[in-house]
Design a protein around this nucleic acid. Structure first.
Length: 216
DNA sequence: CCCTGATTCGC
DNA sequence: GCGAATCAGG
C-alpha cells in the first residue's frame, strides 16, 4: 500500500481525533501500526500522550549495543490537544442514493450520557466519515431554502447538522431543537456519536461513503 | 503477556 | 520516503 493523498488525509484526521496508531492502521488497512506512526511523524503530526517519553529509548533496527540516543531532555510538550472528544463526526448525511438496507432487525438502543440514543452495535456504520472540511461559502439565499435553516439561522439552540453540501443551492441545516449539550438534535446525535467498539469487533470493510473522499 | 508511541536505520 | 525492529513505559 502506498500513501495516497486520501490515505494521508485520513491518517491526519484519525490521528487528530486521537485514534491510536494501531486503530488507524486497522482503518486504513494494508499498513502496520509502525507505518502509521512513522508516517505521522514524517508528516509532522506530533506528540500525543505517549507512554514512553521520559526515558530515552529505541536503538535502531540494528542491535546497536551501546549508544543510548542522547536527546537529554525534550522540553515543552506543546500541543495542548483538546481531549480526544467523541469526534463530532459530521457524517455527510448525503442523500443516500445507494441506500443499503441491511438486516431489518429490532434495534435496541441505549441512552448515552447526554441523553442521546446510542447506536446499537448492529447499526454501527462502518467508517466514521467526518465530512471533509469543505470550504464554507457565503450561504447563498435561495428561494428554495427560504424556509429552511441557513447558515445565518444557526444559533446554539438548533441542530447544526448539515444537509446537502455548502455551495449547493439547497444546502441548509437541520434546524431542529438540539439535544441539550450537543450541537445536534437527538436523531443526529445518534448518528454523530457512536460508542467506540473494541477494535476487533469493528466492521472492517468500509464501503466508501457516497462517492468516496472528495475529489479535488 | 497485552497495549501504547518514539526512534533508528536499512532499504 | 518507507516501515520493521526495537525500545521503554502503562
Amino acid at each position: 500500500m502506498s500513501w495516497t493523498e486520501e490515505r494521508i488525509d485520513q491518517l491526519k484526521r484519525l490521528w487528530g481525533q486521537g485514534m491510536t496508531a494501531s486503530q488507524i492502521a486497522d482503518e486504513l488497512g494494508g499498513v502496520s501500526r509502525n507505518a502509521v506512526i512513522g508516517k505521522a511523524h514524517r508528516l509532522g503530526l506530533e506528540a500525543r500522550p505517549s507512554p514512553v517519553k521520559g526515558g530515552e529509548a529505541a536503538s535502531g533496527g540494528s542491535p546497536a549495543p551501546a549508544s543510548p540516543a542522547p536527546a537529554p531532555e525534550r522540553v515543552a510538550a506543546p500541543a495542548p490537544r483538546p481531549a480526544p472528544a467523541p469526534a463530532p463526526a459530521a457524517q455527510p448525511p448525503a442523500p443516500a442514493p445507494a441506500a443499503a438496507p441491511p438486516t431489518p432487525q429490532p434495534i435496541v438502543r441505549s441512552i448515552g450520557p447526554g441523553g442521546f440514543q446510542r447506536q446499537a452495535p448492529g447499526e454501527q456504520s462502518a467508517p466514521i466519515t467526518p465530512a471533509p472540511p469543505r470550504r464554507l461559502v457565503p450561504a447563498k439565499p435561495s428561494a428554495d431554502i427560504a424556509d429552511k435553516t441557513s447558515l445565518l439561522d444557526l444559533n446554539d439552540r438548533v441542530c447544526k447538522w448539515p444537509l446537502g453540501h455548502p455551495g449547493e443551492p439547497d444546502f441548509h441545516f437541520c434546524g431542529e431543537p438540539i439535544n441539550p449539550g450537543f450541537p445536534y438534535c437527538l436523531s443526529h446525535c445518534s448518528v454523530a456519536y457512536q460508542a467506540q467498539l473494541p477494535r476487533r469487533d469493528r466492521r472492517p470493510p468500509p464501503p466508501l461513503p457516497f462517492g468516496g473522499p472528495r475529489v479535488r
